[in-house]
Amino acid sequence: MCNSGRSRVQQAENDQGVNPTEALIDIQSLRKEYPGLALPAVRDVSLSIQEGEIFGLLGPNGAGKTTTLSILCGLKNPTSGHLAISGFGYAGDRQVIQRLIGVVPQEIALFPKLTAWENLRFFGNMFGLTGAVLKARAFELLDQFGLAEFRDKQIGTFSGGMKRRVNLIAGILHHPRILFLDEPTVGVDVQSRNMILNLLRGLNQQGMTILYTSHHMEEAADLCTRIAIIDHGTIIITGHPADLIRQHQVPNLEHLFLNLTGRNLRDEC
């Protein structure tokens, strides 16, 4: 873990967490073991993600994507290894990192009985946003995501695509520098997916670094500046999608994925 302490926290607060001399996300030899499981969920994972990237973490079910993402979000502690986000580690600078990152879980992590605006107000308050600033930001995003007219409707009445969009808005309300998304387009229609991907591109153009996991190879190839394929808890390849396709002489990313991870089913329970 990186060094920590009040001086680092103070520095982060002073410069809003910017530390341009290091990779924005730096993971070295990350390992995660679960009690009772013979094999580690993640082993010897090393990644370096630069500011401004859209990084795709791809892998079959049970490959270690969600565990890696959970460690990056601070939801799980690694068994061993080094993790730094903008030079800060969770051990001493958790609050600093939590202000830098936005998280969009795979689940619709919203309150179905609350309206879109009430949900966003709650999560905005969790980040310290309040009053007119919060309202303006939430309404702006609702408008961008085509949900302005539904802001006073309860989430429970929304379609799957609408819920996904509010789920995403809740993760970016506070202008995070880094956005972690766990399969943000799962279960949505083509139109919603298209809108979500375009908005992610827009956020990235505004300077947001994005790390996301997905099962959609075509989507990842189209969206990501770089991808990593993980299997059995280990990164097996990293690179730009187009470069990887060319180097391995395959027609698309899905072929490469199947060549590297095999065609056997990866059912998990």
Partner: peptide
């Protein structure tokens, strides 16, 4: 319900 729906985990990723 909050744990199942994921809002609990989302809150854990937020400062405070």
């Amino acid at each position: 319900r909050e744990r199942e729906e994921g809002s609990y985990l989302r809150i854990l990723t937020m400062p405070g």
